[in-house]
Amino acid sequence: MAETSAPSGAATHSPAGAPAEAVTKRDFLKLTTTAFAVVGVGALAWPFISSLAPGGDVLALASTDVDLAPIAEGQAVTVMWRGKPVFVRHRTAAEIEAAREVQLSALKDPATDEARVQQAPWLVVVGICTHLGCVPLGQRPTDARGDFGGWFCPCHGSHYDTSGRIRRGPAPTNLEVPGYTFTSDSAIRIG
């Protein structure tokens, strides 16, 4: 590489004795020093960046138990999980049917209702609009439920159906289904 550059000038810049056109020992030292500096800065930065992530105590609070027995058909409850609301809805037969007869092609974020529930009457979703994080309306009987009978987010107008799937509005994806397990016939543990 260096052969192509001006030979006379280069000689004056190289350390005594080093051949002007070759890659010098100094180039090598510069490169390795820079590489070490970059790794060092990265290693120093990591603890600071990592300290921004959820701490151990926050992660430890990560599961919530819900007793389903008191929730009558057609009712819904909101519980807190990891600081977020989770909607647990005891769906009516009509709501289940409405969720199951939709064509997948009609959905913005296609998912079958069967894949989103473990037991047909119980729909469990994180109650956070996937647009910008507001809590959609529809938990109380008096709430507006939107055009698809599920939930309606008043912030920027997203409509969710009875399976918590996005049907209209700016939200890009369905309401998230958290990991949960049935700990008995009438209780679940979220997280």
Binding site: A53, P54, V58, C134
Partner: peptide, 27 residues
């Protein structure tokens, strides 16, 4: 909530960035 969630629009790493902004799973 709404403003930090703007960052969740970033493809792939968006949700992770938001968790780092919050230091948890919500504000």
């Amino acid at each position: 909530t709404v403003i930090t969630n703007l960052f969740s629009a970033i493809p792939l790493i968006g949700p992770e960035i938001v968790t780092y902004l919050w230091g948890g799973f919500s504000v």
